[in-house]
Amino acid sequence: MSTAVPWYIKAVLRIALPAACLAALYLSIPGEVALAKTAGWSEHYAPAMPVCLSVYALAAGAISQYRRKMKLPGERTALIGGVMALLLAMGAQSISHLIEQSYMGTSWRLVVAVSCVPPLVIAHLIHMAETPSQVRSASEEMEELRAVVHAFMAESAASLIGRSQSLVKQCDTVGTVAGELVKAAERENGRWEELLHELEKEPRPLTLTERIEQTRKSLADKHGQVTVANICKTLGISSATYYRHKPSEQSTAGMLPLTA
């Protein structure tokens, strides 16, 4: 049988409970502020009354729970403080609404009681803070240390698993992108090969030396005068250009004449 906490229970602990606490604190603000104003506090100081009671209740409850779990003295006083904070908050809400709806009026006793709330809260918080802790044995301290180590290891393992899954997803994404890039590169390579193939099919342009040689043969086939002047005139080049690019001669006897 699995002992894992279901997801909806985790959602309640992480979302529903804080939301309910915040809503309850928010709803208690108007009544406690109104009661503080009734007791004589000004507009500037009255909003501190909800903070005083809420923080007091939270601190007393947390200290009581911690002392009970760790088997430390002062658990009862902290529990009494939490109950007192709840009673004060409930009384503040009820009295403020009764006064607002004209079911009752203020009195000197009510003013005195509300005015004593902050000093009593401070006194009890100081008492809980100064309650001496119980001396624990070495085995209890080792057990607590072991629990802390186990919790740390569990959190570390969960964090490593989460990061590993994230890295695996990122690697998959990189692999997909790399595959797409390889396919794109293959397509581009195919296009370049097609372009080179087309270029190879086109005839290579003749160099000036080849054109000079071709003109020589053409003039000889037409029984024309094969001279330097005629070749330059046919190609539209100067004699200096001809001599720079003319084909190599077998001998000085085979050199062409300049003119007819």
Results as ranks from 00 to 15, higher is better:
3 T>S: 09
6 P>F: 05
16 A>Q: 08
30 P>D: 09
32 E>I: 12
33 V>R: 03
38 T>C: 04
38 T>W: 09
39 A>F: 00
42 S>E: 05
44 H>T: 15
44 H>Y: 08
51 V>F: 13
52 C>Y: 02
54 S>Y: 01
56 Y>Q: 04
58 L>A: 08
60 A>Q: 03
61 G>N: 03
66 Y>L: 14
68 R>Q: 14
74 G>M: 02
76 R>C: 09
79 L>M: 14
80 I>K: 04
83 V>L: 15
84 M>R: 12
87 L>A: 13
89 A>E: 11
97 H>T: 13
107 S>L: 10
109 R>C: 09
109 R>T: 15
117 V>P: 00
131 T>E: 13
132 P>C: 02
137 S>V: 06
143 E>G: 05
145 L>K: 07
146 R>P: 02
150 H>D: 05
157 A>F: 15
157 A>N: 08
162 G>S: 05
167 L>Q: 04
170 Q>S: 07
172 D>M: 06
178 A>S: 07
178 A>P: 01
179 G>E: 12
181 L>A: 08
183 K>E: 13
188 E>M: 11
188 E>P: 01
191 R>G: 14
191 R>K: 15
194 E>M: 07
197 H>N: 11
202 E>I: 06
203 P>W: 00
211 R>N: 01
214 Q>I: 10
223 H>F: 10
225 Q>Y: 02
229 A>G: 00
234 T>L: 06
237 I>L: 06
240 A>E: 15
247 P>R: 07
253 A>H: 09
256 L>I: 01
256 L>H: 00
257 P>R: 05
260 A>K: 12
